[in-house]
């Protein structure tokens, strides 16, 4: 973590909304999902799973002596092994995510991404999953560390308040490569980014998919970059690279820009659908509750 940045996004109003979200999430998960996730592996929990014949080397404590008394056969009782789920959040902290830079209090894309990450992390913690958060830019910038239980939510908030100041330009491929090497335990991975990586997103997302991560992509966008209205002789300055670009914007050019970004979003959606990657588009203009409940559910990120 490079520097600490105080963000006003996690105020009391936000926390009260999260509490409501928790209640809503409980309602959503009731009867369908348990707080503890079953695993396909057999283990030492109290939940009976099956019987099997005794073989040499088995723990004699697991032999069901009642069956031996009735059937004169040695069988061993098998129990389910309960495992907690690892949930990782990759949050894009590049300069493009800090846009729009307005002074009227309207949230930036990064604010929206942090709120979404906090919400999802809260749900994960509440379900006793192991939650970890990572900043990334040109590569992975640092993580929060695994946390479990609602009591650890303050760590999440604290982590999200400390946004790295110079994360560099977005490099999804390097980020995902580093993440796959570093995280051995497979689990859920949420990528929260605008995915504005000139190097492309396909290889990076494919790499995580290839490494058996269950992947969800939340693309955070602002309406002003979806439908820009400015015309005239302009000098466009990119926040990430500081590169300037002179254009004479007219209706025709804007129309072609709209077509280009619509094509980008459409391709991303098709890419995720084809590979079983959960995809949702989050707009900074959408209210928080709608964003979490409607958009993420529409994207099959939560159920």
């Amino acid at each position: 973590m490079d520097t600490a940045t105080t963000s006003p996004i996690f105020d009391s109003a936000f926390l009260s909304k999260l509490e409501q979200l928790y209640l809503l999430s409980r309602k959503l998960f009731r009867g369908e999902h348990r707080a503890e996730r079953k695993s396909k592996q057999l283990g030492s929990s109290l939940e009976f799973a099956d019987y099997r014949n005794y073989s040499g080397g088995d723990d004699l404590r697991m032999v069901d002596w009642n069956i031996y008394g009735r059937l004169d056969r040695l069988v061993v009782k098998l129990f389910e092994q309960e495992q907690d789920l690892h949930i990782d959040f990759l949050i894009d902290a590049s300069a493009s995510m800090r846009w729009p830079e307005t002074s009227d209090g309207s949230p930036s894309k990064l604010d929206a991404a942090c709120r979404i990450a906090a919400s999802l992390a809260y749900i994960g913690l509440a379900n006793l999953d192991r939650v970890n958060l990572h900043w990334f830019g040109s590569s992975l910038q640092g993580d929060m560390g695994l946390s479990r239980g609602k009591s650890q939510f303050h760590k999440v908030l604290e982590f999200l308040r400390r946004v790295p100041e110079s994360p560099g330009q977005t490099d999804l491929r390097t980020t995902c490569q580093t993440f796959a090497r570093r995280i051995k335990r497979r689990g859920l991975v949420f990528v929260l980014s605008d995915l504005f990586d000139p190097g492309g997103y396909e290889e990076a997302l494919g790499l995580l998919r290839h490494n058996q991560f269950e992947l969800h992509v939340v693309q955070v966008l602002d309406p002003s970059e979806l439908r820009p209205r400015m015309t005239g002789d302009l000098r466009l300055v990119e926040g990430e690279s500081g590169m300037a670009f002179d254009v004479t914007a007219n209706e025709s050019l804007l129309r072609r820009y709209h077509e280009e970004i619509d094509l980008f979003i459409k391709d991303l959606g098709a890419f995720c659908l084809k590979r079983g990657i959960g995809y949702a588009q989050a707009s900074t203009a959408i209210p928080f509750e709608d964003l979490v409940l409607k958009v993420l559910r529409d994207g099959r990120i939560i159920q």
Binding site: S96, M97, W99, P100, E101, K109, D194, F196, P198, D222, E225, P228, M230, G232, D233, L234, R235, L236, V237, E238, G239, E240, S241, M243, A244, F245, D246, Y257, E260, I261, F264
Partner: peptide
């Protein structure tokens, strides 16, 4: 020219 900050110049 009028200077306008944008999130990305990609498009």
């Amino acid at each position: 020219r009028r200077q306008i900050p944008v999130s990305t110049l990609m498009f």
